[in-house]
Amino acid sequence: MTASLGCSAEQLATRRLILKGVAAVTLIGLGHAAFGAAPAFAANDPYPEDAFRLKGAAEAIKALYGREHEPSDKIKLDAPEIAENGGVVPIALTTTLPDVTSISFVVSENPNALAASYKIPEGTVPAVANRLKMAKTSNVIALVESGGKLYSATKEVKVTVGGCGG
């Protein structure tokens, strides 16, 4: 009965085991490699490990797209003025830009700025809604890759209860 629900003792025990494992790996010098095992599937779309690991917004965007972005008024970024809780901030985007191939969200002040990146294949509507964590008040930069160019929209979201708690 208990096992079917959220935070079981079993789960906590597993967490501790894994922690030990990581410590051991670090000792022999592999560092983050324990988490770096790339998923076997989606060979065509490798997970952009490096971009997610970088700290700052500019570095992450450069690693992900390798180019500059320019603001566009054809992107509608919907985010709250004040997040009710930094752990769950609803953020949505729609755009009228043509030939959109990807949409990404960057939270400038997060420990790792890149939050999520979405591939938009042909036939998929260039719009996405998701829920992100925000450590503190920050700009949210939405990036849209359209016709080989990179456009952006930025909005500040105030965070009074940070999303790095429990």
Partner: peptide
């Protein structure tokens, strides 16, 4: 979707 740790 490619996600990092900042997804809720």
């Amino acid at each position: 979707a490619d996600w990092g740790t900042a997804v809720s």
